[in-house]
Design a protein around this nucleic acid. Structure first.
Lengths: 304, 304
DNA sequence: CTCCATATGTGAATGAAATTCATCGATTTA
DNA sequence: TAAATCGATGAATTTCATTCACATATGGAG
């Protein structure tokens, strides 16, 4: 009855990676003949060719492409399942894999994780920063178990919990004319150099909620990976940035940086923790959300 | 290396459903002993008990619960994958990638694709207009599965089927002196502006079959992408074009354009569908050709 | 063009691993 | 308490994946 096995998926994935049966066989600690037999049998049983044999190269057919996608989706889940079983065997509870879509939240996350590790000594925590398909896909694909994001996407099977509100502010250096201003208007940034994290503009609040509605673009846009370098640049007058107010205040002791409200009403943001509904009963996952909720960062008071 | 297999997940799920090893074994067409051995080996390898044996009943341990969740998530995906592979094998699932080398055929193609989509709901249709190597190469290179072209190139491995005959005619506007003429001669176009699709002259019938043999060139040659704009220009006396007669008739209600025969005998054309011999057995590909053959556009009667 | 290195395909042989068989002890039920 | 049912266990058996040996095809170097 059952035809498709884990080994078939492994072969298909490895052939794609290595480019040849022989190389894939070596990688899987098998002989080329074994793979050839295994695939021949599979192709025979399902009645579909997986590769087009063009000379000595193997090109996946449409079913082959489909199986490859299935392999890339399923095999990591097998690997993760075995990994977790090993952790169970060692007496650990498991691994909480946290995906971050929100660069400046890293500081905040560290504050949550520290007490969490104390309270759940048998749970490993793994924080990941990058995703291929966007965080939601990583949640659905069981690559991560928790997603830290400013963009909750309410879909069946997922659950989002707001964990804190904050105000997004402009950050300027000590000699900047806007320092101390009550607020800044979009056109006042037209001649500025804007420093942001390296993500598309439509994922940046400063654009979507401030500049783009006003039809303004900054003179220059400079992507920077790390918050420290970013604030260093701002402190030395090389540009301005947009960050959560609480984060600016946190760094105030190390860098000469100053917050300025974005627009007369400010830009309000919320950060959410996303998880799978299916994991709702797992105690150490629920505990993380509860812990995060209690560590809420108070929002700067915003006018209505 | 790999410990966890599909069968283990199947056993775990079935034991949960049936409530006992014996019943699960019957369901899986195995003996109770086989399951007992299989599970014993798995528990031994991962070093974790999957069930708590309380008397004769099996209560899943925490790792057992975890594996049960994994089984309920992964097994349906295996089943679904196998189901789709069976559909691939039967030839009623796949993507039909159609390459167009014949600009004005687009209207005709839409008429074929509409009923095709109804009849083959699980087949995706993808229409592509541009190729790197020319259509034949795209067929050989598996970039497309079907080629709509006026130039069949009979090569081993390819199969071309004529799907309709038509007459290529000159199109003129309402005030053009040639309007209503029995036919036009090449030298009558020497002072005209000729509007064509943006492809090389040696791919245009008006050149290869009409102008070039007579050694004539039009005064001006204007490339236009879309049929609508092309006919709009013609209707307003900005030039003349060469198109299939059936297409001119189709547009007659929207634009004031009029066909004139090219030469006393007219220019006869045929459109072919090209495919790979290797795909001859794939139902959804063959069905497309059959459908296209029944939707033949009747050729305008041509003198012999 | 030829040779050689390299790739995949194939059939028979082999051996490891899954399955069955036979049986036991334990638990539930009548 | 006996009968029935269930899971565990060890030995026997069968299955089937793997290997071995070899055939065949291809692409590149000389």
């Amino acid at each position: 009855m059952a035809i498709l096995e884990r080994i078939h998926l492994a072969i298909i994935r490895e052939v794609e990676r290595q480019g040849s049966l022989t190389a894939a066989a070596a990688q899987l600690n098998l002989t080329q003949s074994a793979l050839s037999h295994a695939i021949a049998k599979l192709e025979d049983q399902i009645g579909v060719k997986i590769w087009r044999r063009e000379g000595r190269s193997l090109q996946p057919t449409q079913p082959g492409e489909f199986l490859l996608a299935a392999a890339n989706r399923l095999l990591p889940q097998f690997a993760h399942a075995e990994e977790r079983l090993r952790q169970f065997a060692k007496g650990d509870r498991g691994t909480l894999r946290i995906g971050m879509e929100c660069h400046p939240c890293y500081q905040w996350l560290l504050k949550i994780v520290a007490p969490y590790l104390d309270r759940w000594p048998k749970v490993e925590v793994d924080v990941r920063q990058k995703f291929q398909f966007g965080g939601i896909g990583a949640l659905f694909g069981y690559e991560i178990d928790m997603l830290v994001t400013p963009d909750p996407l309410y879909k069946p099977g997922l659950r989002f919990t707001p964990v804190f509100d904050y105000e997004q502010v402009l950050v300027v250096g000590p000699h900047h004319p806007l320092r101390g201003a009550d607020f800044v208007l979009p056109n006042q940034l037209a001649e500025e150099t804007l420093i942001t994290y390296p993500v598309p503009a439509d994922r940046l609040d400063i654009y979507t909620q401030f500049l783009t509605p006003a039809g303004i673009s900054p003179r220059q846009h400079k992507p920077i990976e790390t918050t420290d370098i970013m604030l260093l640049m701002v402190a030395h007058g090389r540009g301005v940035a947009a960050l959560p107010r609480w984060l600016v205040e946190e760094y105030a002791s190390r860098f000469k940086v100053y917050p300025v409200r974005l627009g007369p009403d400010g830009v309000a943001k919320q950060i959410f923790l996303g998880m799978r509904e299916a994991d709702a009963e797992i105690d150490y996952i629920r505990a993380f959300i509860e812990l995060a909720s209690t560590h809420r960062v108070e929002a700067a008071p915003l006018p209505i």
